[in-house]
């Protein structure tokens, strides 16, 4: 058989075609499966992000409610934090003791002659260095400076877990809003994270200021539970009422790794043994896993 004849020989071409088609279909199916696996992870992340976001939105509502109920107190606290005297009376003569201001001399004091200052009834006016940052530092989340205490006090209870008043807890508890023996579908928390006081007219306008308030919401991954379905044994360990455990472990872990309460999600057949890296630390890692979201707004505060 010549080469020309071999080229023209079409015997077995159908088998070749079938193999090609089959391989293509297989490749498509694998791509589809991989894409789904990736989407599942993203979806779970999106779920937790949404949970955190709405807790942060709740914090914003809490803050706005306090601003509505106590507008003057908020304005005063914000003014004091940046050294303004919120009760300065512009229609009266400025007096050190009766009508001090309009700005307080907060900051570091430098007394050039202390004896003179003390001996003459403190008549020497020290030199003041206005310093300090009047926003929440990363370290202590408090306003720095003496007069910042007023704003710290105002902001500190716009938060969960203050005297057990507002609580988001998936363990059964007596909830001020929902009643006794209530449990939330997951645990979380919120607080005011940052306040920036912009002031108005470079801070010299009195009676009104602009502030930026950023609220932080956190949702925990562990102990997510159904409010209506029983866990039939697969329940979160923090809840004796045994609701269905909704914490997702993405089928990555075997029963041994996930611990109790995940038997309905974990499946050794589906588990990828290469992803057992969390091993014995699984439960502690899960307990600390949480997602954080922020909601920020700019508001006008004024004395009323």
């Amino acid at each position: 058989m010549s080469i020309q004849q071999m080229k023209l020989n079409q015997k077995g071409i159908s088998v070749l075609l079938v193999i090609c088609i089959g391989m293509t279909l297989m490749a498509l199916a694998v791509i589809l499966m991989t894409s789904n696996t990736s989407n599942t992870g993203n979806m779970q992340e999106a779920k937790e992000r949404t949970q955190s976001l709405f807790i942060a939105k709740g914090a914003q509502q809490h803050a706005l409610l306090k601003f509505r109920l106590l507008p003057t107190e908020f304005y005063d606290a914000a003014a004091l934090a940046i050294g303004k005297n919120p009760i300065y009376n512009f229609s009266k003569v400025k007096s050190r003791y009766e009508n001090p201001g309009p700005a307080f001399f907060t900051g570091e004091a430098i007394v050039t002659n202390e004896a003179n200052a003390q001996g003459n009834g403190g008549n020497e006016i020290p030199i003041f260095q206005r310093s300090g940052q009047w926003w929440l530092s990363d370290d202590d989340k408090k306003f720095n400076g003496v007069m910042g205490e007023y704003l710290n006090k105002f902001l500190e209870d716009i938060a969960t877990d203050q005297d057990d008043e507002v609580v988001i807890d998936s363990a059964p508890h007596d909830d001020l809003a929902m009643g006794n023996n209530w449990f939330d579908p997951f645990a979380g928390s919120y607080r005011v994270d940052k306040v920036l006081i912009f002031g108005k007219a470079k801070g010299v306008n009195y009676g009104v200021d602009s502030v930026l308030v950023s609220c932080r919401g956190t949702a925990k991954r562990a102990f997510q539970s159904s409010l209506t379905l029983s866990g039939a044994g697969n329940c979160p360990t923090n809840n004796p009422q045994c609701p269905r455990n909704l914490t997702r472990v993405y089928l990555k872990y075997g029963v041994t790794q996930a611990g109790s309460g995940f038997a309905d999600q974990t499946n050794e057949d589906f588990s990828n043994s290469s992803k057992f890296e969390m091993g014995q630390t699984f439960e502690s890692e899960l307990a600390s896993a949480e997602r954080v979201e922020y909601v920020t707004g700019v508001y006008e505060v004024s004395r009323e």
């Binding site: 807790i55 709740g58 988001i168 997510q224 209506t228 269905r244 089928l251 309905d264």
Partner: peptide, 30 residues
Amino acid sequence: QWQPKGWGKGGSGGSTKPQEFYLVSFKANL
């Protein structure tokens, strides 16, 4: 709460049960 189509019977893991998703937030009288 919902049941994905084709996941009602059989399936692996917890797929036979309905899926659930919860949100918690707070509303103020502003």
